[in-house]
Design a protein around this nucleic acid. Structure first.
Length: 583
RNA sequence: CGGGACGUGGCGCAGCCUGGUAGCGCGCUUGACUGGGGGUCAAGAGGUCGCAAGUUCAAAUCUUGUCGUCCCGACCA
């Protein structure tokens, strides 16, 4: 492609709306333009990268025996009602009504397609002989984001690859899950991403049933707990800590328990400020309804309770915060003054609670807290559990080294779904004994736009983007420095033609611009291999080659130009290929 | 949905407090010089100051409303 024939609106200045590097660079390099909050147009350069990511995904999905199909963006409302997700998604669903003759039709723009594909499969699958099967689609999905942000990272319209597997047995599901997991590793490695598969909340199937693929990045929206020692990685919701129960022996030199007045101080922050006591000396007492039974959950004041862990600790099905009425019943006080001393319900506590000496906690009485509260003396605890969100420097659950807390961008998610949708939509099969079972599903998503944004976010320098070869919109950029110099142009055009002929993605900067401007743009758009054809070099019979990441260019004989490009590209491809897991 | 900020040529900004002539840099057009990291000179084009109502002789500037965008938080099968 010739620069003069395509559309690459580079910008020297940073648009004021863009805050994070990927957003700034994607705008400045002319990859995308914003259409509205949460919706972006992909310009030629951006689209080329997007398509390359898409192609890699497609190849790897096919390789893993998944078969591509296309579903509709328009979906009927009733199917979302059948699975209860109309309510679950709430305002995130983009719904609208259209007229058809004298009636109105309610539609939803698909935010994902489990319902749609399950419905189709329900009609197709009859026998266990047809299972397992995995299908996938790469399509635009729509979610009305409450707050779109970070450029292309969080939008209301996005390109997503979703694969759905259907199997007769959990063993089949496990096998597909493993092969999808492997395919994901290959996909992200091929895209040149530094990614981390992390354990995620596993839902109905339990066990090792869900992983998120995260790209560690400063501006990532998700938090990951990561152990550099043993490689343990989990999202914040899921992450266990290696903390253990400590003895609850009563320490000496404790203060007396005293009631203090704390008018209107109902939060940890308020009480902490009012009494001048740090939050870690306080006991946070949360009243939950656990399978319908009120239970007080204790965590340290500066910690955050983790409902999934509570659920697991108590082997419960339903965990939700109690309403004010229930709180009033068990604590005899309005919400905000609960404490373990004299409370009238079950009590479970996080490990760290038992370690607090002379704690401050609610007095189960309006406008009052206790100070000097100590376990064993003022209240009793049974076993303690890991009930809170993991924190930096907690011990790793696998190897006990300190955990790190890092931010990440979620680019993929694999999930053992189970029978949630197949049961709701009557997608059954008959087994060899003619017994009917719901099909067991798995789903596997990749945010294609996020691959591009994550690369922009994590692979750039002060001059611009640095694309990996596999995702770069063009592999090679030819820069004739002075397009009025006939000799320069002849060499450039020749090389351009040869490379085109050989099927190389090559961009020729044929603009009548000064060298400085061309170099700046070249760095900004980040094409991996740059070949400069200039008057000075030609006098010595040389071209200049420079990989985007090289410090300085190296000289190559004009006659060897084409061969050198091919050689360099092949070498780079081989180097990149070494990072792809062979599974 | 709570909190905050901002809307002025294509982009980045000043002007607003203290009402009266719309300004700067980059980009763009034409020409000349120049030609290896966003060059120089000269001459130009381009804005109903987001929109609406109000106050005023007079509104980019003051008031109210509204729309849009961004940031923090809540939310995110």
């Amino acid at each position: 492609m010739r620069w003069s024939k395509t559309m690459i609106p580079t910008m020297k200045e940073i648009p004021s709306d863009a805050e994070i590097p990927s957003h700034q660079l994607m705008l400045r390099a002319g990859l995308v333009r914003q259409v509205m909050a949460g919706a972006y147009a992909y310009l030629p350069l951006g689209l080329r990268s997007l398509k390359k990511a898409e192609a890699i995904i497609r190849e790897e999905m096919n390789r893993a025996d998944a078969v591509e199909l296309q579903l509709s963006a328009l979906t009927p409302i009733d199917i979302w009602e059948k699975t209860g997700r109309r309510e679950a998604f709430g305002d995130v669903l983009i719904q609208f009504e259209v007229r058809r003759g004298d009636r109105k039709v309610q539609m939803v723009l698909g935010p994902t397609h489990e319902e749609i594909i399950t419905n189709i499969m329900a009609h197709y699958i009859k026998s266990y002989r047809q299972l397992p099967i995995t299908v996938y689609q790469i399509q635009t999905k729509f979610r009305n984001e409450e707050r779109p942000r970070f450029g292309v990272l969080r939008t209301s319209e996005f390109l997503m690859k979703d694969a759905y597997s259907f199997s007769a047995t959990v063993e089949q599901l496990d096998a597909i899950y493993d092969s999808m997991y492997s395919a994901y590793c290959r996909i992200f490695a091929r895209c040149g991403l530094k990614y981390l598969p992390v354990e995620a909340e596993s839902g109905p199937i339990g066990g090792d049933a869900s992983h998120e693929f995260m790209v560690p990045a400063q501006n990532g929206e998700d938090q990951i707990v990561h152990c550099e020692g043993c490689g343990y990685a989990a999202n914040l919701e899921r992450a266990d800590t290696g903390r253990t129960a400590s003895s609850q022996g009563q320490p000496s030199n404790t203060n007396k328990m005293e009631k203090v007045s704390t008018p209107d101080a109902t939060t940890i922050a308020e009480v902490s400020k009012l009494l001048g006591i740090p939050a870690e000396k306080m006991i946070k007492t949360l009243i939950y309804e656990i399978d319908g039974k009120p239970t007080a959950v204790l965590v340290r004041g500066d910690h955050e309770a983790n409902e999934s862990k509570i659920k697991r600790a108590l082997n419960a099905d339903l965990v939700e915060l109690a309403n004010d009425e229930t709180v009033k019943k068990v604590t005899n006080a309005p919400t905000g003054f609960a404490g373990p001393v004299g409370i009238d319900c079950d009590l479970i506590a996080d490990h760290d609670v038992a370690k607090i000496v002379d704690a401050v906690t609610g007095a189960n009485e309006k406008d009052a807290h206790y100070t000097g509260v100590n376990v064993g003396r003022d209240y009793q605890l049974g076993n303690t559990y890991d009930l809170r969100m993991a924190d930096a420097d907690d011990p790793c659950p696998k190897c006990n080294q300190p955990l790190k807390l890092v931010h990440g961008i979620e680019v993929g998610h694999v999930f053992k779904l189970g029978t949630k949708y197949t049961e709701a939509l009557n997608a059954d099969f008959l087994d060899e004994k003619e017994k009917r079972h719901p099909i067991i599903m798995g789903c596997y998503g990749i945010g294609v736009n996020r691959i591009i944004a994550s690369l922009a976010e994590t692979s750039h320098d002060e001059n611009g983007l640095i694309w990996p070869l596999a995702i770069a919109p063009y592999s090679v950029l030819l820069i004739p420095l002075n397009i009025k110099d006939e000799e320069v142009m002849k060499v450039a055009e020749n090389l351009y033609d040869e490379l085109q002929e050989a099927g190389v993605d090559v961009l020729l900067d044929d603009r009548k611009d000064r060298p400085g401007a061309k170099f700046k743009d070249a760095d900004l758009i980040g094409i991996p291999l740059r070949v400069v054809i200039g008057g000075k070099g030609l006098k010595e019979g040389k071209l200049e080659f420079k990989w985007r990441t090289d410090e300085s260019p190296s000289k190559v004989d004009v006659g060897a130009g084409f061969d050198t490009v091919m050689l360099e590209l092949n070498q780079r491809k081989e180097e990149d290929a070494e990072l792809i897991p062979d599974v």
